[in-house]
C-alpha cells in the first residue's frame, strides 16, 4: 500500500515531517488535584492526577520518597469497533508501566516522602500514538497538580514507511506494520527518557527517524509550556492580591 503519494503527501494529507494538530486543555476533572485533556489530531486522551496523598496500601509506603502509580485504560467507545475490554490486559498493563516509569523519572519524589501520587489516563479517541498522547496529558496534569518536576516530559512517535521517515503516525500508518519509534524526552535537560520501537530499522535510518521524533517532542514541549504559562497567569490575576 502506498502511504506517501508521489506528490509527497500522506494518507491524511500531511507532509512526512508534519505533525497532527495538537490541542490541550487544563482542568478537565473538577475533583482531581490536576487534570488535562490532550489531543493529537483525532487521538484524544484525558488524564487526572490525585495526590500527593496518604498511601492507601501501607505495605507499599516508601519512607523517603513518594510512590507513583499509573493506570491506563481505553474507553470502550475509543476505537472504531466497539468492544468491551477487560481491565488489566497485557497491552494496558504494559503502557501503564511505561507511563509510570517515564513520569517517575521526572517527578521529584524525594520532596514528598510517605505519600502517593496516582495518575489515571484514559483514551477517549484512539487514532494512533495513544502512548505519546498519554504521556503528554500526564505531564500537563502533573504540572497542574503543582507537583515538582525536574522537567516536562514530552513524547512523540515517528515511523518509516515507503522509504520515508514519517512524523506522528496515525492509526492507518501505525497498523501498516512498519517500524514505529516512540520517543520521550526531557527538553530542557536534553535527555531521552523513553525509547520504544516495533519492527526493524537499519541503524543509519534509525538515527534520522529518532531525530525526527525528537523534533516532534520539542514542538509538543513548546506548546505545553505555552498552555501552562497561560494557565498560571490566569490563576494569578484572578486571585488578585
Amino acid at each position: 500500500m502506498e502511504y506517501v503519494s508521489p506528490e509527497g503527501l500522506r494518507l491524511d494529507g500531511r507532509r512526512p515531517m508534519e505533525m497532527r494538530q495538537i490541542r490541550a486543555e487544563i482542568g478537565a476533572v473538577a475533583k482531581a488535584d490536576g487534570s488535562a485533556v490532550f489531543e493529537m489530531g483525532n487521538t484524544k486522551v484525558i488524564a487526572a492526577v490525585y495526590g500527593p496523598r496518604e498511601v492507601q496500601n501501607k505495605s507499599q509506603l516508601i519512607g523517603d520518597q513518594a510512590l507513583v502509580r499509573c493506570e491506563y485504560s481505553m474507553a470502550n467507545f475509543s476505537t472504531g469497533d466497539r468492544r468491551r475490554k477487560q481491565k488489566g490486559d497485557r497491552r494496558s498493563t504494559e503502557i501503564s508501566l511505561v507511563i509510570r516509569q517515564t513520569m517517575e523519572a521526572c517527578i521529584m519524589t524525594h520532596l514528598m516522602p510517605r505519600s502517593q501520587i496516582d495518575i489515571y489516563v484514559q483514551v477517549l479517541q484512539a487514532d494512533g500514538g495513544t502512548r505519546c498522547a498519554c504521556i503528554n496529558a500526564a505531564t500537563l496534569a502533573l504540572a497542574d497538580a503543582g507537583i515538582p518536576m525536574r522537567d516536562l516530559v514530552t513524547s512523540c512517535s515517528a515511523g518509516y514507511l515507503n522509504s520515508t521517515p514519517l512524523l506522528d503516525l496515525n492509526y492507518v500508518e501505525d497498523s501498516a506494520g512498519g517500524p514505529d519509534v516512540t520517543v520521550g524526552i526531557l527538553p530542557k535537560l536534553d535527555k531521552v527518557t523513553l525509547f520504544q520501537m516495533d519492527s526493524k530499522l537499519p541503524i543509519d535510518i534509525l538515527d534520522n527517524v529518532m531525530q525526527l521524533a525528537i523534533e516532534g517532542c520539542k514542538a509538543v514541549a513548546n506548546y505545553i509550556r505555552e498552555i501552562l504559562l497561560e494557565n498560571t497567569k490566569e490563576l494569578e490575576y484572578r486571585r488578585g492580591v
Binding site: A143, M149, D151, L152, K188, L228, L229, T232, E236
Partner: peptide, 9 residues
C-alpha cells in the same frame, strides 16, 4: 508582575 509567572524548567 508581568514576567513573574514561570512554568516547569
Amino acid at each position: 508582575n508581568s514576567d513573574a509567572s514561570v512554568t516547569i524548567a
